[in-house]
């Protein structure tokens, strides 16, 4: 089955979403990610969505859910690389992703997480 790779960098986990999300894939990602946070004792999650042209309400909710789950496991989530068009669409849809931190790119996101965990 198709899975979204999760890379570990120190105590951070990096998830790059490059394919269209569907229910099965999203559930698998939530499952994998929560397991990895516990196993790797991660304290930060970076979700890179720079490859996504379209983010609909489904993906928006999934990202919010992942952030909430990670928070329960004491890890901070940062969404990075959102495109301008995607940001405008999300705002117009009323999905402002409350509780999710954002950064312009992976580098900034990583700096944000590291400064918090120091």
């Amino acid at each position: 089955m198709e899975r979204i790779p999760i890379l570990r960098m120190g105590r951070l986990l990096l998830v790059t979403i490059q394919v269209d999300m569907h229910d099965q894939l999203a559930l698998a990602l939530q499952d994998d990610l929560t397991n990895r946070i516990v196993r790797d004792r991660a304290n930060g999650v970076l979700i890179d969505i720079s490859a996504l042209d379209v983010v609909d309400s489904f993906i928006g909710r999934m990202i919010s859910n992942i952030a909430a789950m990670a928070r329960v496991l004491d890890a901070r989530t940062v969404v990075v690389g959102m495109r301008p068009a995607v940001a405008i669409t999300l705002v117009e849809l009323g999905l402002e992703l409350p509780g999710v931190r954002t950064a312009l790119n992976v580098e900034r996101g990583m700096a944000l997480l590291q400064s918090e965990n120091e």
Binding site: V79, A87, V91, T102, L104, N105
Partner: peptide, 12 residues
């Protein structure tokens, strides 16, 4: 507020 929210989503 929409503009602010969109900028926040871009990490600014």
């Amino acid at each position: 507020l929409k503009t602010v929210a969109a900028a926040r989503l871009m990490g600014a």
